[in-house]
Design a protein around this nucleic acid. Structure first.
Lengths: 339, 339
DNA sequence: TTGTAAGCGTTATCAT
DNA sequence: ATGATAACGCTTACAA
């Protein structure tokens, strides 16, 4: 038996505002919606009553009733990569600008991805944005099985599944141009530094570079694989791998799958192997993280078109229908001192 | 008029599971709660029915009914600081481990903070964790006014308001020890590199260092202020500020309020001013971001006790009552090559 | 241990 | 333009 007159510590509800404004509860709701058909007079009355009572619509109740949560899940892993911070900042910002809340879900590893997706679906997120490296086809299927995730968008990498939307940088075009640039600058014995095989294959950066170089010079450059996109790990792997190469295969350039690998590689070259960058070995990265422009690294790299990608993501999220396919954006080479 | 027998694309609800399992809807609910009193037999029946139907409890509806959302809002700004990535990863991970969702709210600037807090409160978050630099007392008051935010926790800095909980590193103890270390190592003319005045005052790192140094040597070291905790900005400010100092005040050490400032300072020293670190000028930072251990910087710094701080945060969030006060943890000096 | 009634605060839908 | 009805899917009582 709730006493309507006892307002102590009770949450202010639309009914309270309605009573205060002398209108119905539904009119209060309309006043707070953009598109609703309501007279200016009513809206004013409602708004002033709402203000004096300190009323704010309850998004939880609204979500339940409307079956739209205005929540977007952002599923991430790979927090070692400094590029992640750029993405998190940008996406959480544009989501908020669009009126969506950001549900950040930290996927620990590949096996964790399906459960992360379920966690999101239990909150009826309007969409799930996957920005990570460690999920695979299984995740996609789990996601599509979770009926409450209406939209599944793979951000910053291509998707293996045809049913999903993916928004990414044109990796193939990028690596072609990087190969051309390396060739033009006179480098002749590059090595490609790649991430873990599974993810590397999806990015298609490695195969593109290797293929393009082979087309130009008839031989495929060697590769170094790093198990994780982490700066210290890349450093360790490059330190181990380089001295083992026959002298004839000693590289004059390391083309790296991303900046984390590139920075780790530079650390190894300079501080473990005593080589000068770019004097002895040049380095090219990918992402253009903040550090790439620091004078300590001054890294030639590829800038992902984050503006365009974020804008495309918003468009896709806004769309009423279920779009699908790939949205690919070009990006640009950022020439600095390292190559 | 919903047709109960038409299951096409309908969300599976507790009622469906109840029917399938031959129990009541409430028993289904109990089966999914940890503490509920339910017979093992019923639970098994329910769970197998749930599994075969693909049922998962709807957290939205649960939140509305129970008035607990199991959502924690994480209000952040200062995404330029690489330390933010450590915090985001850690907190989103422990929240998930505890069964809480993370609502990431990106505060653009100081004026944005109150509205960010309201956005969180509209989702009935169980708690709001503030991890940022740009909010001030006004935000606190706005937050406490928002009745639906039950707990307000300031993370990684002290709070100005006595009504809030704060979990932070012992900045005062840290800077005392840094001053002692600098003194012991023979540095005699340090400069303190601080962030924006408002925030700097709250951290108390600057005043602690200055005070401690004055107590030891009778004079207060000069300061350089940077408007933002950003690496490039710190670089620019140090580049401008250092040459202007009289030769007698030329520093042999820069003590920096955090690693972002320290890294920017090192860039300026080495690449703009042609000075060797630590040969000509030593540098000390604060935070121990990933970059600090890179050989390019090899930064002596203070490691915030993130483990302990995250654990304390969980305890505070778990607590039924409303704890308050400051939870302070010590951290440790990480000695590397830069000082 | 299990079932029932009464909400939680909103919105979709229809009626006026 | 506004009001009324019936959900949305669950949980907290409390009764059996």
């Amino acid at each position: 038996m709730t006493d309507q007159t006892d307002l102590t510590d009770r949450v202010v509800t639309a009914d309270d505002v309605a009573t205060a404004a002398g209108v119905s509860r539904w009119t209060v709701g309309r006043a707070f919606r953009k598109d609703a058909s309501i007279s200016e007079k009513s809206r004013k009355k409602v708004m002033s009553a709402a203000k004096s009572l300190g009323y704010l619509p309850d998004l939880l109740a609204a979500s339940l009733a409307s079956d739209r949560s205005n929540l977007v899940a952002l599923l991430c892993d790979d927090f070692d990569n400094p590029h992640k911070l750029l993405v998190l900042e940008r996406l959480s910002r544009v989501f908020r600008e669009e009126g969506w809340g950001t549900l950040l879900v930290n996927m620990r590893d590949a096996s964790d991805a399906p459960s992360a997706l379920l966690a999101a679906s239990q909150r009826r997120v309007d969409a799930a944005v996957l920005n990570g490296t460690w999920f695979d086809g299984r995740v996609m299927r789990a996601a599509l099985g979770a009926r409450r995730v209406r939209k599944l968008i793979v951000f910053a990498r291509t998707s293996e599944s045809p049913d999903t939307i993916s928004i990414c940088c044109d990796d193939v075009g990028a690596l072609r141009e990087i190969a051309r640039y390396a060739d033009d600058r006179g480098y002749r014995s590059p090595i490609f530094v790649a991430g873990p095989d599974t993810h590397s294959a999806i990015l298609r950066r490695k195969e593109t570079f290797l293929g393009e170089w082979k087309a130009r010079h008839g031989r495929q450059p060697p590769c170094i694989h790093v198990d994780h996109y982490s700066i210290p790990l890349a450093r360790a792997r490059v330190r181990e791998a380089l001295p083992g190469l026959a002298a004839a295969r000693r590289p004059d350039l390391l083309v790296c799958e991303n900046d984390a690998l590139a920075i780790g590689a530079m650390d190894a070259l300079r501080h473990d192997l005593g080589l000068a960058v770019p004097g002895d070995v040049a380095v090219i990265g990918f992402d253009d993280v903040g550090l790439a422009s620091s004078p300590a690294y001054d890294l030639t790299t590829w800038r992902q078109p984050l503006d365009a990608m974020a804008a495309a993501l918003v468009d896709v999220l806004r769309a009423d229908h279920e779009p699908s396919g790939e949205y690919v954006f070009p990006g640009e080479l950022v020439r600095r001192g390292s190559a």
